[in-house]
Amino acid sequence: MVEGVEESVKYIRKVINNFQPEIAIILGSGLGDIAEEFENKIKIKTSDIPNYPLPTVEGHAGNLVFGEINNANVLGFQGRIHFYESGKIEKVVYPVVVAYELGVKILIITNASGGLNKNFKPGDLMVIADHINFMFLNPLKIFSPNINRFNKPAYDENLKKLAIETGIELKLPIREGIYCGVRGPNYETPAEVNMLRKIGADAVGMSTVPEVITANYLGMKVLGISCITNYAAGISPTKLSHEEVTEAAQKVKNEFSLLIKEIIRKIKQGKI
């Protein structure tokens, strides 16, 4: 177990009593409002949880929200920890390990990302088919230096299919593509964007990959969804900013929320 998690989980369990989350959602930049729609909410500030790392980026509130969506018990992470904030991979994957220790079986990871595929546009919702790890680090080293390798799709095939079908049914701008994770904190140069496009990436961001690797190692099923908030540098002449990213995510939050709720309803109905 990651150091400090046991004490964090003990504190959380005291607050939520017998509540048992089935599904956890990590909410990316500008997408945290989804957790405010939970029914019978229990909200815990991460600053109150022993050992829990605190997010420092705008648009990441720093709350754990427990509640219900379509009769499913869910845990929403309002705010994630990026590697560039501390340089410590243990902090990045801390929420995933907490979710696992609380009994979560399915992890939905969301993010705001820059579009590399010129056929995508801001506002599109991209189901992550696979990822490219350009962070050049792997969180599994914190679990064991001699960890067994595993060979399976990082993103659950049934959950991917369910998400795409649901997006089409709801007439949402749903896409499927490859996500590339980089360390940040700066945005990519036009030359880097051109390189990433050539190696097959459809979107780029500064999160998700370590969380997905950890969740797979722990045996959780993973669904990843990116909100394409902007064109990457070199594709758009506009100067990029975090404010632009969060503002764009806010514009599609209703569509994003609708998609997440319907996916969870179908999961609860056993359609995977």
Rank of each mutant, 00 (worst) to 15 (best):
residue 166 T to F: 07
residue 168 I to H: 01
residue 169 E to F: 00
residue 169 E to D: 13
residue 171 K to Y: 08
residue 171 K to F: 07
residue 172 L to N: 09
residue 173 P to Y: 05
residue 173 P to I: 05
residue 173 P to M: 05
residue 173 P to N: 06
residue 174 I to S: 12
residue 174 I to L: 10
residue 177 G to R: 13
residue 177 G to C: 13
residue 178 I to W: 01
residue 179 Y to V: 09
residue 179 Y to K: 06
residue 179 Y to L: 08
residue 181 G to L: 11
residue 181 G to I: 14
residue 183 R to H: 07
residue 185 P to K: 09
residue 186 N to F: 10
residue 188 E to L: 11
residue 189 T to M: 06
residue 189 T to N: 06
residue 190 P to H: 05
residue 190 P to Q: 07
residue 192 E to A: 12
residue 193 V to L: 01
residue 195 M to G: 08
residue 196 L to N: 09
residue 198 K to D: 12
residue 198 K to F: 10
residue 199 I to S: 11
residue 200 G to W: 12
residue 203 A to Q: 03
residue 203 A to T: 15
residue 203 A to M: 05
residue 204 V to Q: 11
residue 207 S to G: 03
residue 208 T to H: 02
residue 212 V to Y: 09
residue 213 I to K: 01
residue 215 A to W: 04
residue 216 N to L: 02
residue 216 N to K: 08
residue 218 L to D: 13
residue 220 M to R: 09
residue 220 M to P: 10
residue 220 M to G: 04
residue 222 V to K: 02
residue 223 L to E: 03
residue 226 S to K: 02
residue 227 C to T: 15
residue 228 I to T: 13
residue 231 Y to T: 08
residue 234 G to T: 13
residue 237 P to T: 09
residue 238 T to E: 15
residue 238 T to C: 00
residue 242 H to S: 06
residue 242 H to Y: 10
residue 243 E to S: 08
residue 244 E to Y: 03
residue 245 V to D: 02
residue 246 T to G: 00
residue 247 E to C: 09
residue 247 E to H: 12
residue 249 A to I: 01
residue 252 V to F: 10
residue 253 K to V: 14
residue 255 E to V: 02
residue 255 E to Y: 12
residue 255 E to P: 08
residue 256 F to P: 06
residue 257 S to A: 13
residue 258 L to R: 15
residue 261 K to S: 10
residue 262 E to M: 01
residue 264 I to D: 03
residue 264 I to T: 06
residue 265 R to G: 11
residue 265 R to H: 07
residue 265 R to V: 02
residue 266 K to G: 00
residue 266 K to L: 03
residue 266 K to P: 01
residue 267 I to F: 01
residue 267 I to Y: 06
residue 267 I to T: 00
residue 267 I to L: 06
residue 269 Q to R: 11
residue 269 Q to K: 13
